[in-house]
Amino acid sequence: MNEATQLPYFRAAFYCRERKSIPVVRKFTRKALVDWECEERADDVLLCVTELATNALRHGVPPGRGFRVHIYLERMEKAIRIELHDSGDGEVRAADGLPGAEEEGGRGLLLVEALADKWGVGERNPGKIVWCEFTLA
């Protein structure tokens, strides 16, 4: 299910397109933050990685494929960068406004936009990279 790479300030892992991958992504991310002693924004980072992984799972990963999570500690810039790589097509953007109270989805990227210091979408062939960054004190 999970193939992981560990370097001093970089972690990467592959996850299958299945719901049970989401808590494993959170655990993987938390471990990196603890190992790097970067827990000051852990709640924000974990919420955002959960939202990005859920979006990849629901919208970005074609059936039979998976997604990759990359986590970087950029020591010089004092920042954590999270990237989700998927092979799906489609446009990624935050909603223009809040979804209705009865709607189940549509808040994930609004949360990422509110909690992360930066976020964006990069190209990948096939697919895309959705990323977010968190500045550390």
Rank of each mutant, 00 (worst) to 15 (best):
L111R: 14
L98R: 12
L84F: 07
F67I: 02
E37K: 15
D86R: 09
D44A: 12
G60T: 02
E104C: 08
S21N: 04
A42P: 06
W36R: 04
E133I: 07
K128Q: 13
F67S: 00
D96L: 12
L98K: 09
N125I: 15
T5E: 14
C38H: 09
L7A: 14
K78A: 05
E77L: 14
F134T: 03
Y9A: 09
R58G: 02
Y9F: 15
V92C: 04
D44E: 09
W119C: 03
E91Y: 11
G60I: 02
E91F: 11
T135A: 14
L136V: 07
L33P: 02
K78N: 06
I71N: 03
L7M: 13
G127A: 07
L46N: 06
G88Q: 03
C38S: 11
D35R: 10
F67T: 00
R93P: 01
D86F: 02
T5G: 07
D43M: 11
E83Q: 10
E83K: 07
L98H: 08
T50Q: 09
A95H: 11
E102Q: 12
D44W: 01
K31S: 10
A4Y: 09
H70Q: 11
D35G: 09
G64R: 06
Q6N: 15
G127M: 08
E39L: 13
K27P: 03
E77T: 10
E37R: 12
F10C: 02
A13F: 02
I129Y: 09
K118W: 12
L115N: 10
R11A: 15
E103Q: 15
F14G: 11
R81D: 03
R58W: 08
K27F: 12
T29G: 08
R26F: 05
D89V: 07
K27Y: 09
A114R: 15
A101M: 13
L52A: 04
Y72I: 00
K78S: 05
E102D: 14
V49R: 06
E77K: 13
R30W: 08
C132M: 10
I71G: 01
E51M: 05
K78Q: 12
F28M: 06
V130W: 02
G60D: 00
T54G: 05
V34E: 11
V92I: 14
F28K: 06
R93H: 12
D117Y: 02
K78W: 01
G90K: 08
G66I: 04
F28L: 07
P8R: 11
G97N: 09
H85A: 01
L84R: 00
R75N: 01
D117Q: 01
L115C: 10
E39Y: 00
